[in-house]
Design a protein around this nucleic acid. Sequence first.
DNA 1: CGACTTATCTTGACTCGTTCAAAATAAGCA
DNA 2: TGCTTATTTTGAACGAGTCAAGATAAGTCG
Lengths: 144, 144
Amino acid sequence: MTSQDGIEQVLKAASMRVTQPRVAVLAAVAANPHGDTETIISAVHREHPAVSHQAVYDSLKLFTSLGVIRQIQPQGHIARYETRVGDNHHHVVCRRCGKLADVDCAVGGAPCLHASDDHGFKIDEAEVIYWGTCPECQAELINE
Amino acid sequence: MTSQDGIEQVLKAASMRVTQPRVAVLAAVAANPHGDTETIISAVHREHPAVSHQAVYDSLKLFTSLGVIRQIQPQGHIARYETRVGDNHHHVVCRRCGKLADVDCAVGGAPCLHASDDHGFKIDEAEVIYWGTCPECQAELINE
DNA sequence: CGACTTATCTTGACTCGTTCAAAATAAGCA
DNA sequence: TGCTTATTTTGAACGAGTCAAGATAAGTCG
C-alpha cells in the first residue's frame, strides 16, 4: 500500500504528479511510525538533501487529505504521522515523555461512534486518545 | 463550584493566593463555555482592563492543573476552556467551522477506558473527540 | 494596623511549528 | 523534444504560546 507502485497508483488516481519529494516523504513516514515532522524531514534529507521543508509539509498535508497517512497531534505535542489508516485504531500518549503507541479498539469495529446526544451534528469519526504513563517513565518515577 | 467563595476555597486549599486576575479569569471561563484564550482575555479585559495576557495564560494553566477547568484543543484549533469537569463527558467538533458541543458518554460512566492492549502504559484518562459537521454548516453546504 | 516577604503580575521580547508568496523547476502530455 | 503548469525552492512571515526581569500586591506576623 505504501510501496513504490502503490504510491504512484494513489497519486495518479487523484490526478497528482508523482514527484521525488512525495515518494520520499511517504517512504519516510512508513519507515518512522509516529514520527513527527522534524523526524520526517530529517529522514527525507538523508536520501534527498535538496528537498525543502516546505515540500515535506505540502506532501504530508496532501497525503493526509488523500487518506494515505494520518496525522495525530495530542495536546501540547507537535504533529506526528503514521501510515496505518482505515482500521479505526487509537493511541496512548505518555504524559511525561510524549511517547505514543497504537491501541486497537476495545469495543470492536467502530466503538463510541454513536454519541448519546449529537446536538444535530453529523458525526463521521470518533477520535480516542488515552493518556497515561509509559513503562519507562513509570520505572523512572519509582527511582526518584 | 465556581462561585466567588468556591474559587477562594480551591485556591487556598492549594496554597495559592486569591488575586483579582485569577478570580476574573475563572469567572470569564464560566461565562464563556468553550471559549478560546482570545475570548477569555477579552472577557477579562471588559471588567479588568489592566490584566495582562500573561496573567490569563498563567491562571488558565494553574486552574487546569488544579482540575478546576479543562482545556480542550482539537487538531488545527487553538485551546478552549470549560468549567464542566469531572463528569467524563466528551466533545463534538465541526470540521467546517470549528464549533464545539458537549457530548455525554455514550456507554456510561467511564467508557473506553480500558484499551485492548495498553502496551504497559498506565492509563488514567480516555479523551474522545467526535468529528463531524454542525447543523448550521450542513444547511450551508446544501445551499451551494 | 503597618511593614515585610515573596508569590504573582506586567511588560516586552522571543520561540518555534507552521504557513504564505514569488520565482524557479521538473512531471507528464502532445 | 518542447510546452504547460503543478510542484518546489527560497526566504520571509505568522501567531499562539512562553520566557525573564523588574514592579506590584496578597497574605502574614509583630
